[in-house]
Design a protein around this nucleic acid. Structure first.
Lengths: 182, 182
DNA sequence: GTAGTTAGTGATTGAGCACTAACTTCCTCC
DNA sequence: GGAGGAAGTTAGTGCTCAATCACTAACTAC
């Protein structure tokens, strides 16, 4: 396998592991194990752990954006909103990407606090990409985009906490999102 | 200082430090330093690190709930909603509690993944307390409670990422929340 | 076949971690 | 005034982790 191919599979493994444990709570050994390579080899593919996380963050955000784009491309705003809602379900089904997003948010904050500006900036940029792409696809104004993301964030947070699908916190969640689907 | 008083100040320090670095990313040494005691002494005040985090989580949730209750108590629903919105601003001003809440969510998930049910359950219980108290105070139905929290969660996430107050993601945020207030 | 490159590993290191044991200091009450 | 206990310390243990180093095996080019 070429180094580039290997990097792709490492990033996939990293998303899974980081989604579980967050940046600080995930060891490079765990990522290596899941990717099927030795732990030292990670540091030949990437300069350090931070860069693995960033690659995972950028990949994950791109994935979500592409799912939205495939769902909403070429549709009029009203239908696009419907289709993107449905597409979001597919993302929720394997919670991985959604949970990794939460981990990105708290990692960004930690980086800011630690004075690691570039890291935080790149994480913010990834999020802004998703925000702008969604806004465009939704054909939405600022308020609608805000609502779309607010809604999604609450779903992410409730999912992260592991509330069972029949819990009362879910009752007002729009029916097309089924929190028990995974 | 009595052990009980000391515990209170340790919990306060823990909220600050955990908000910064999350559960795994925060050392007990950092908490001890901020609380002004030696690191081993933490383990006389609390059985282990997990229990420090839980105490911080329960304290933090209680704080937020009390702020809401003080703001909304005895007011008719419409005014209560207004007052609680204003009260939320006070919470947002020092981002600490808000950010710690995010850390609670991802810690809960990590605990679930690691098979630590009781830990995750207690974190969920803290969140549910806040949810139910807010619902009651708002005099709201499920949909309104959902919207209230969805809105709050997006604010939390954007704050965590450190978007500056003049960034376009904030433009649709209701005016009473000033993300630059801190 | 030999010179060079690419993919990959095992052993190790030094720092930082949660947590423990054993000690000191000071206040209180008889 | 001294015994007891609570508050708090210093010193240390064993472990985990990110990152480094020295190496091998297989392939490619001439």
């Amino acid at each position: 396998m070429s180094a580039d191919e290997r990097r792709v599979s490492v990033v996939r493994a990293a998303i899974t592991e980081f989604a579980r444990g967050g940046y600080a709570g995930t060891s490079t050994a765990a990522i290596a194990r899941r990717a099927g390579v030795s732990q030292p080899y990670l540091f030949r593919l990437f300069p350090d752990k931070r860069e693995i996380f960033l690659a995972a963050a950028e990949r994950c955000t791109l994935d979500i954006r592409q799912v939205f784009e495939e769902a909403g491309r070429g549709l009029p705003p009203e239908e696009a909103r419907e289709a993107m809602g449905d597409a979001y379900q597919a993302l929720v089904v394997d919670r991985e990407r959604v949970l990794f997003q939460l981990q990105m948010h708290v990692a960004g904050h930690a980086a800011d606090e630690a004075g690691d500006r570039p890291f935080a900036d790149r994480l913010r940029a990834a999020f802004t990409d998703l925000w702008d792409a969604s806004r465009l696809l939704l054909g939405a104004d600022d308020a609608e985009t805000w609502d779309f993301f607010a809604h999604g964030m609450l779903i992410n947070v409730l999912l992260a906490q592991g509330f069972p699908p029949d819990h009362r916190v879910w009752v007002a969640c729009p029916p097309r999102i089924d929190p028990g689907a995974s």
